[in-house]
Lab assay of single mutants.
Amino acid sequence: MDPFVVLVLCLSCLLLLSIWRQSSGRGKLPPGPTPLPVIGNILQIDIKDVSKSLTNLSKIYGPVFTLYFGLERMVVLHGYEVVKEALIDLGEEFSGRGHFPLAERANRGFGIVFSNGKRWKEIRRFSLMTLRNFGMGKRSIEDRVQEEARCLVEELRKTKASPCDPTFILGCAPCNVICSIIFQKRFDYKDQQFLNLMEKLNENIRIVSTPWIQICNNFPTIIDYFPGTHNKLLKNLAFMESDILEKVKEHQESMDINNPRDFIDCFLIKMEKEKQNQQSEFTIENLVITAADLLGAGTETTSTTLRYALLLLLKHPEVTAKVQEEIERVIGRNRSPCMQDRGHMPYTDAVVHEVQRYIDLIPTSLPHAVTCDVKFRNYLIPKGTTILTSLTSVLHDNKEFPNPEMFDPRHFLDEGGNFKKSNYFMPFSAGKRICVGEGLARMELFLFLTFILQNFNLKSLIDPKDLDTTPVVNGFASVPPFYQLCFIPV
């Protein structure tokens, strides 16, 4: 058959498939802009700032609406009420993970971030239990974070109060905490193996944040037939998995079943207990991918939040002064901060919360999916439909947070200066898919920041009023603009 005829037939089939998918069930789905064949609503979305586009569309179609990214149908949730109703009140029905062709290629359905069903539930339950087990290797997770915080302070001392970009050092600290939990080992910041790991993690975040990856996920045929950065992403992930597998083999040879040292040991012990169960989800494949998931999810998000926190503290020296006064009063100079201190430091706690609220790190979270046909607000959402959640619409709700575009710790303080919780605080998402490392991340943010401010004054290279804190939105995360500062020993 003539190649031209084959091409026309293929394009015609794709067009018909697109029209059929977009028209099927439209009477039951939430409203939304009319999609174009094949490309859907992509032309109506700013790929570099999806969150802003969703906010604009919500003003037209309401808090629940339908979009098509290519052939992929998505239902968008915008605003606290619908997000709570879906992710919390109907948590089980909305607990699936959205379709990610690239991740599915890399992870093969294993791990904790992109798995679904029984596998996801069992691996998540085990990971939560293990991360909360403060007795691994007779050292609590808090001990590990405190140790890394001391190392971080010593690295900052080496800058000798000269101007520096904190990106690298602030990236090393949370990565080392995860390494300590998974591998029972922290690395020197100049260790070549550690630097290679950091390089792969950072490069992957840069790649994932590009519009090209959005295109690959919406048109998965590209993955096999086109060159691009997605190939580098898959190569980096394969490198990390190979490295983790080597460490798993080392653990198998040296493990003491009665004295687990780290996450890998705990997983291997669980595998041993379930070795007679042919349906067990505790396999080497799941261990390797879960460890890679924890490394990827637990490094860049925390380091970016820390980097943004220091920029905001530079911009608002009056806030920094209040935090340091609270540190001096509650902790002093002669001991290290600990998590028990947080309950006695409402202002510092409010500042950490406000940093996370203000920066809105992951504006749309990772997409969910419905696990069955769901009736939601008089609409029928078919099983498997991807759910896109606007966390921006919750964290920047102007009824809950007056002047949401302003950095103001009073958003989390009552009139008496006591810490005030808010149900709208969802930087880790909400419901059954809430970030498994939430507790660890909150511990790291509090301890790293208090250790830094206990030991250093922060000095800006320019007038604080002239510092730009506008986030650089890159399609996946909101990151701070480049800046330098000086760490002046107190």
Rank of each mutant, 00 (worst) to 15 (best):
K48D: 08
P37S: 04
A103R: 11
H396T: 08
L102H: 06
T305H: 00
C338F: 06
R119N: 09
G96P: 06
S478A: 00
R433Q: 03
S95H: 07
I88P: 03
C266P: 00
K247T: 09
R333N: 14
F428N: 02
H251F: 00
P33D: 00
T320I: 10
Q276S: 14
I182F: 05
D262C: 10
K465L: 12
D360K: 05
L57R: 02
T302S: 06
R307Q: 09
L29R: 06
G79S: 07
L90Q: 15
N116Q: 13
I169K: 03
I284T: 10
N56S: 12
I45D: 03
Y225P: 05
P404M: 04
A369F: 06
G40R: 02
L440R: 02
S390I: 09
L197R: 05
T450H: 03
F4I: 08
F451V: 15
F267N: 01
H411G: 01
N41S: 06
T34I: 13
K138M: 14
E122I: 10
K247C: 11
P317G: 08
L314N: 05
S23K: 14
H230W: 11
E253W: 09
R132E: 14
A106W: 05
D341Y: 06
P30R: 01
K383W: 03
G40A: 01
K200F: 03
D243G: 13
F476D: 05
V153H: 00
E326H: 02
R329L: 12
K421A: 14
I88S: 07
K322F: 08
W120K: 03
D165P: 02
A369D: 03
P317Y: 03
F376H: 01
C164E: 06
T301Y: 07
C13S: 14
C486L: 07
T389R: 01
E104N: 15
P363W: 02
Q214G: 09
I223M: 13
C172S: 15
S18G: 15
F187Y: 13
L311C: 07
D397F: 02
G79A: 00
K232I: 11
P480T: 09
F282W: 13
C216A: 11
T301I: 15
I387H: 00
G417I: 06
T299N: 04
T283H: 09
S422H: 05
V472Y: 15
M426Q: 00
I222S: 05
P30S: 01
E147D: 11
S336G: 09
S58M: 05
T283P: 00
G137R: 12
K247P: 02
A321D: 13
P402K: 11
P3H: 06
I213P: 06
I331E: 00
K160Q: 14
D341K: 02
P166I: 04
R335Q: 06
I178R: 03
Q22P: 12
P346D: 05
V473F: 10
M129T: 11
T305I: 04
A149M: 08
V323N: 02
G25V: 15
L7C: 09
F94A: 02
V76K: 01
F476T: 10
H99D: 07
R124T: 02
T302G: 06
L295T: 04
G109Y: 06
